[in-house]
Simulated assay, not measured.
Amino acid sequence: MSLENLLMFAGALVVLFLTPGPGIAAMIARTLDAGPWHAAMYGLGILTGDIFWFTLAVTGLAAVADQLGAFWLVAKLIGAGYLGYMAFKAFWSAYTGARPKPVFPSGSKRGWAATYVAGVAMPLSNPKPIVFYLTLVPAFVPIEAITAWSYAAMVAIMIVLAIPAAAVYIIGAHKARDWMQTPAVRKGTDIVTGLVMTAIAVILLLR
């Protein structure tokens, strides 16, 4: 696997990790409710779930590598459709101001273990990560080139990028509690999310 492939994979992950979604919203809520360290534990759980989906996607894609042409077409259509749905939800949230049901009830003081488990459950119950990995991995990385070493390198890239991405939101929420809760900021975030998801869907269809 070339360095260019790894860099393209890293670029795709930056978009995945920084684009607001249910996991990031929950981390921000956990920061506001229980502090940054609980939010970091929740983020660690999310990363664990993401690595699980990534591993499942890589092993599954390797099993169908010979038929990847037809599979990739189907995966692109499913991925673009789901990203379009997420974009619609983000734009609708910006228009109506509707907020998703919080992962943690207000005032929840769950312990470290419960917070971590809740973080793991987020990606495991959310189709976004598996759709991303099933569509982004074959788009940027030749499946036949994924070895044990390149898999380890890709997981390392996930960890290295996930930590600062989560820190941006956790530290920002901790330092600007009131500002992060304002309707104008939430509306702007939803609009940016919708635009990014739409752009990724178009890129997937055109590649």
Rank of each mutant, 00 (worst) to 15 (best):
residue 119 G to L: 08
residue 112 W to N: 08
residue 100 P to S: 10
residue 127 P to N: 10
residue 159 I to K: 09
residue 103 V to W: 01
residue 95 Y to V: 13
residue 132 F to H: 11
residue 171 I to M: 04
residue 186 R to Y: 12
residue 115 T to R: 03
residue 169 Y to V: 00
residue 85 Y to P: 08
residue 100 P to W: 02
residue 133 Y to L: 11
residue 132 F to T: 14
residue 149 W to G: 15
residue 190 D to F: 06
residue 140 F to R: 14
residue 135 T to K: 02
residue 183 P to M: 00
residue 194 G to F: 08
residue 137 V to L: 15
residue 172 G to P: 02
residue 143 I to G: 01
residue 105 P to K: 11
residue 132 F to Q: 09
residue 195 L to A: 15
residue 84 G to N: 11
residue 98 A to F: 06
residue 128 K to E: 05
residue 98 A to S: 14
residue 93 S to P: 03
residue 180 M to D: 04
residue 91 F to C: 10
residue 184 A to F: 10
residue 146 I to P: 03
residue 98 A to Y: 05
residue 200 I to K: 04
residue 92 W to G: 11
residue 123 P to L: 00
residue 141 V to D: 04
residue 151 Y to P: 00
residue 194 G to V: 11
residue 114 A to E: 12
residue 186 R to S: 08
residue 179 W to Y: 12
residue 179 W to V: 10
residue 152 A to G: 11
residue 170 I to A: 01
residue 151 Y to C: 04
residue 142 P to K: 08
residue 129 P to A: 01
residue 191 I to Y: 07
residue 173 A to C: 05
residue 99 R to M: 15
residue 177 R to D: 00
residue 175 K to Y: 07
residue 144 E to R: 15
residue 106 S to F: 14
residue 127 P to Q: 12
residue 136 L to M: 15
residue 164 P to E: 01
residue 97 G to C: 09
residue 151 Y to I: 03
residue 144 E to K: 14
residue 146 I to Q: 00
residue 184 A to E: 14
residue 96 T to N: 01
residue 110 R to M: 13
residue 107 G to I: 04
residue 136 L to F: 15
residue 102 P to H: 09
residue 177 R to L: 00
residue 135 T to Y: 03
residue 190 D to T: 09
residue 190 D to A: 13
residue 126 N to Q: 09
residue 87 A to T: 12
residue 92 W to E: 14
residue 130 I to E: 01
residue 197 M to W: 13
residue 172 G to Q: 03
residue 108 S to H: 13
residue 202 V to N: 06
residue 166 A to L: 05
residue 182 T to P: 02
residue 107 G to C: 02
residue 100 P to D: 09
residue 180 M to G: 02
residue 90 A to K: 07
residue 84 G to D: 12
residue 176 A to Q: 12
residue 169 Y to S: 03
residue 159 I to W: 02
residue 107 G to Q: 03
residue 87 A to L: 12
residue 131 V to C: 10
residue 146 I to L: 05
residue 142 P to C: 08
residue 186 R to I: 12
residue 160 V to S: 09
residue 137 V to F: 09
residue 142 P to R: 08
residue 107 G to V: 07
residue 112 W to F: 14
residue 111 G to K: 06
residue 191 I to F: 08
residue 93 S to D: 05
residue 134 L to Q: 00
residue 106 S to G: 13
residue 119 G to W: 04
residue 103 V to T: 12
residue 159 I to H: 04
residue 120 V to Q: 06
residue 136 L to N: 13
residue 119 G to F: 03
residue 187 K to W: 07
residue 103 V to E: 11
residue 135 T to P: 09
residue 117 V to E: 02
residue 177 R to N: 02
residue 195 L to G: 11
residue 200 I to V: 15
residue 178 D to N: 12
residue 142 P to G: 09
residue 174 H to E: 11
residue 115 T to G: 00
residue 167 A to W: 04
residue 163 I to M: 04
residue 106 S to N: 14
residue 150 S to R: 08
residue 111 G to C: 08
residue 173 A to M: 02
residue 147 T to N: 07
residue 178 D to R: 14
residue 172 G to F: 07
residue 166 A to V: 04
residue 198 T to D: 06
residue 194 G to A: 11
residue 145 A to K: 15
residue 99 R to W: 07
residue 185 V to D: 04
residue 144 E to C: 07
residue 194 G to N: 03
